[in-house]
Every structure is written in structure tokens, then in C-alpha cells.
Nucleic acid binder design. Structure first.
Lengths: 220, 220
DNA sequence: ACGGTCTGTTGATTTGGATCAAGCGGCCGG
DNA sequence: CCGGCCGCTTGATCCAAATCAACAGACCGT
């Protein structure tokens, strides 16, 4: 489900513009909650940057087991592939606005600009670094450690807000951390009971972190 | 432990040479079994390509739990970092020969060659792709599935030899797959009992895969 | 050749997290 | 405003893999 809200918008500040320069055409689209942006195996036609909302990218096993690679927040780019096909599926977690540029334009643009491919390289390396840290989490951390690590990561990426609002469900968190949603829920309740965090209101997605340092120590 | 066996050797065919061109100086070194090539956090001074042997790269938690990111075989490159410090430790699994080039030389060289940074990008993207697949394994596959996936991966990387000789121990395999060495050993014994593989001789590291297709189906 | 250490296998037992199950409150559409 | 569904929590039970334990053969240096 795809709604074009503003085509041929002049590129504004951000990584996408930085990558491709001021010449390449770029559009803005809106995806509704839960909709697919692209699917695993599809041809990689566009590169995306989020302006508002949140996106998850995942892989599936044949029987439906799901692993979420990453969550993407405003400012983040995703969908860049070396080959011509996407290696995973991307979906909007909530209503999400993205700036879109044709893959071909990026490739053209980086060819003609010193440092263009270099920015791309930095982008991919950051993703690799995140993946390396996440392999350590998935391979060797316990459930409470994974959840603590997750909270610290989201807190940092949201800029240490007083109150953080998670866009994703417990199931999404579980599929990111290699756990079940029940285990995630229990771990969060445990942290609440230990006064390391507090749920704001009744929604369970607005969380205030009390004692961030102790939380950080729980995710070694 | 570092033994210089041949400095200022003219670069021969391979990725390193392809990356940097024929101009950049490169040396060859030998590391003995079990020795560290570089440590996590150290300054990234060199980039490496294996000519013989095998290397593992890993991260540690403070209490010693280990996650092996990747195994590197002859022809593979490793140690390239975007920042100036290594994000993990690299060790020789067996006696290993590597071709070494200064990081700075690579950076210089790629600046002056069209497609230089592009080759680097392809390299990093391949690592990222491997990491994404490995996250799926670590987050969502069962122990028998992990071991089957591992065997299929090594078989492919070694070029589907009639008899494959694994350079790494059961503990290394376990730390790569997020399991214990006992679980890996049991899974291998189970596959042997099912006539999906055979141990050659008494060493337990020489394995013949019988019925590769069925093995591939076990690692969905 | 020999003793010690290292690597791997196998068996017994434990346990962390998965699975199964019930219930609650919010939210959305009619 | 109501009814059903969805997201989440919590409790009971189960099970796959970890842990604990014993042992056997290979490999190493002397």
C-alpha cells in the first residue's frame, strides 16, 4: 500500500542528499501501519530514508520463523543492496514517511562525486558493525541481557528522551532479540519490579528508564 | 607471534591486489596455530588476505563468553575497518600465511583508481550479507539446523571436496553457532548415525558428506 | 616409548526459555 | 455505546540445550 504524497520534491538535508548530491530526483511516500515497503528477493529499485515513523526489516524461514535484522528510525537509510535484489523484507511498523530515490540514480550520482561511494561505504560498514554486535547478542546473551541491551540501544537512538515511546510490539522485539514475546514481557516486568524502568500510562509502549547505568550493566 | 617470511613481495593475483592496484607494497607473514593476528579495539594498521591456513574472528563478553563472527579461508580478506580500530579479534586457527598491506596504502590506492572504493564496498556488503544470514541462524534455528547449515556452508566454501578437512575445533564451531561443544558433537554424531556424513579416519575433523541435498534441507 | 594434555564423545541431570493456557484492558468499527 | 479483536501480562508445564561428569583416543614434548 503506497501513497505518493509529494513527488519530485527537491532533496533536503540528510544522508540521501549527501550521498547523491543535489541533482538526483527524489520523491516522498507514505506507508500505512503494517504495510510492506519491499519484499525479500524483489528487485531493488529504490533506496529509502525515513522522515517520520519506523520500519522493521526481517528474514523468514520456510515455516514462518522470523528474524528481524534491524529497526529503522527517522533519519535512517535502508534498502541499499549491492546486487540487484533485496536480501530481506521491509515493513512500516507505524505510519511512516520515506524519501525515495532510484537505486540507479544513486549509482550514477556516486560515480561522479568524489566521496560518493565513500559515504555509501560508511553506511554499509555501520550496518555491518550493528550486525556484528547483534550476533554476539543472539549467540551468547541471556534473555534479561538481551532485553536490557535492547532498551539501552533504543534509548540511545531516540536521543535519551525522558520518556521513550517504542513503535514496535512485544512480538517485534522478540523477533529482533531471538526470544518469544512472553519472555520479553516477563523480562520487562522484572525490570519494572526492580525499579529500573516505569511504564507511563496504560499503553505499555511508553517507558521511562530510571537508572540507565544499571540497565547498561545488565547487558554486558 | 609474527614471523616475516617475505617482505616487499610483488603483489600477485587476488582481491588485495585488485583492490589496491599493482603499486601498493605488500608483505607476507606467517602466524602459528592459535596466535592472535590483531585484538579487538587495537588500531587497524593493516588489511589481510589469507594465502594458506584459516582464521577466526570473534568478540568477547566481559565474563568470557565468545561469539565467532566468521571463519576466513584462503583467498578471503579481513581486517578492513571503516574507523581506525578493530571491532573484533582475529586469530590463526592453524598455521596461516597472510598477505598484509597497510590500511593507509589501500585508502590511498582506492582514491586514485576508479572502482577501487567500489571493490571495497562489494567486500563489506558480502560480509554484511553473511552476517544477516547468521543472525537468522543464531536467532531462530535449532541446534541440528545450525550444524547442518554450518556443514553446507563449509562444504560450499571449500569447493565441495570429496573429503572436507575442517581446520577448527568443536569449541570453535560451537562459538560460531551459539551452542556448546557437546551439543555440536552430539548433532554431528546424530548426522553420522543417519548416514548423512562419515568421519574419515580417527581425527573427527575429516568429514565426507553423503547426501548433500538432504543435509541442505535440514538447515532451512 | 611414555606421561600428560588436549580434543572429542557420550551419558546423567538441570534449567532457561518455549509452549500452552487464561484473563484483562484498550481500541476500533459499527 | 457496545462487542469483538488485539496486544500484553501472568501462571503452569514442558523440553531442547546447557551443564556436570566420566572416559577414550590423539598428539606433543621429552
Amino acid at each position: 500500500m503506497l501513497v505518493n504524497i509529494n513527488t519530485h520534491r527537491p532533496p533536503i538535508d540528510g544522508h540521501l542528499a549527501a550521498l547523491a548530491g543535489e541533482r538526483a530526483p527524489c520523491s516522498e511516500y507514505r506507508y500505512r501501519k503494517g504495510t510492506e515497503i519491499f519484499g525479500e528477493g524483489e528487485e531493488a529499485e529504490y533506496v529509502y530514508q525515513i522522515t517520520a515513523g519506523a520500519v522493521r526489516t526481517h528474514k523468514l524461514l520456510t515455516d514462518g520463523r522470523r528474524q528481524i535484522n534491524a529497526f529503522h528510525l527517522p533519519g535512517d537509510m535502508f534498502g541499499f543492496e549491492n546486487g540487484s535484489n533485496h536480501r530481506f523484507t521491509a515493513e512500516a511498523i507505524i505510519e511512516t514517511d520515506v524519501r525515495i530515490m532510484r537505486r540507479g540514480s544513486i549509482i550514477e550520482a556516486t560515480k561522479n562525486r568524489t566521496g560518493g561511494t565513500r559515504s555509501l561505504l560508511r553506511l554499509v560498514t555501520q550496518n555491518l558493525q550493528h550486525a556484528e554486535n547483534h550476533m554476539l547478542l543472539l549467540g551468547r546473551k541471556t534473555a534479561p541481557e538481551r532485553v536490557a541491551t535492547f532498551l539501552v540501544e533504543m534509548d540511545a537512538r531516540l536521543g535519551h528522551p525522558q520518556l521513550m515511546t517504542l513503535p514496535m510490539s512485544r512480538r517485534d522485539i522478540a523477533d529482533y532479540l531471538g526470544l518469544t514475546l512472553e519472555t520479553v514481557s516477563r523480562a520487562l516486568s522484572r525490570l519494572r519490579d526492580q525499579n529500573l524502568l516505569r511504564f507511563e500510562g496504560t499503553t505499555q509502549r511508553r517507558i521511562e528508564l530510571l537508572r540507565r547505568e544499571e540497565l547498561a550493566e545488565l547487558g554486558p
